[in-house]
Design a protein around this nucleic acid. Structure first.
Lengths: 115, 115
DNA sequence: TGCGTATATAAGCATGTAATTATATGATAG
DNA sequence: CTATCATATAATTACATGCTTATATACGCA
């Protein structure tokens, strides 16, 4: 039993509810290895831009991710300083890597690179 | 990075969605240390019997828990043989223990004991 | 300045979820 | 056998969720 951190069960259920959506869970897994901007997610998930923005908003609202503007784009990254990041991380590390999605993006020349 | 098991991301999101409810998450945490019957859950959660039954059904439908009849009561227990039990367990072990809820039941003389 | 691109927000709608009440089932005790 | 107790299921309802379309914002560039 890991005693390094425990998460209040109510907060935990709230976090798990957020992760309990395939799109958001994949986003979080992806963000662990690559910062991504909105239009990349749109490509990756074949989903409308507002739909993506709304998922990101939920993650941002509880500060699981943060945004950084780079030129025209807004990049999202995981907030590793979040109180519950260790908990989140312990969940994500059990999931198969999703880097293939980014590789595929690059292959299509759709990966956004800022300088 | 634990490579002993990985869970398909779609199945993982489905499992996390189930755990993303405070009642069910607490149930699962409780069941890790104590088998419980329906009427105990009713007391613990101060919730109607059908509401409890419906939560248990969701957990049973994907076989996270199993039921065993003992006399008048049906006891629920965690299905440790579930393919994804290691994943579930790794989540539950990060949560604070909920044994206080059972202790409280016992104090009220409401704990069900069979033989 | 004004246009185009990237992203956010708002409103509306369809579907999903979790509760309630009412009823059915199924085992046990008399 | 019948009544009772524990639990399950069904029907209904209120609310949450996730998408769509339409519109707003905000920055970069000609």
């Amino acid at each position: 039993m890991n005693k390094n951190f425990t998460t209040d069960i109510q907060r935990a259920s709230q976090l798990l509810k957020l992760l309990g959506d395939q799109t958001r869970l994949t986003m979080m897994k992806l963000l662990q290895s690559h910062d991504c901007c909105v239009c990349e997610f749109v490509e990756i998930f074949k989903m409308s831009q507002p739909a993506i923005s709304q998922h990101l908003r939920k993650l941002r609202d509880i500060e699981l991710v943060k945004e950084t503007r780079k030129g025209k784009w807004i990049f999202y990254s995981i907030n590793k300083d979040h109180k519950d990041y260790p908990f989140i991380q312990s969940v994500l590390e059990k999931l198969p890597g999703q880097d293939g999605l980014v590789t595929e993006l690059e292959a299509q020349g759709l990966r956004i690179c800022c300088e």
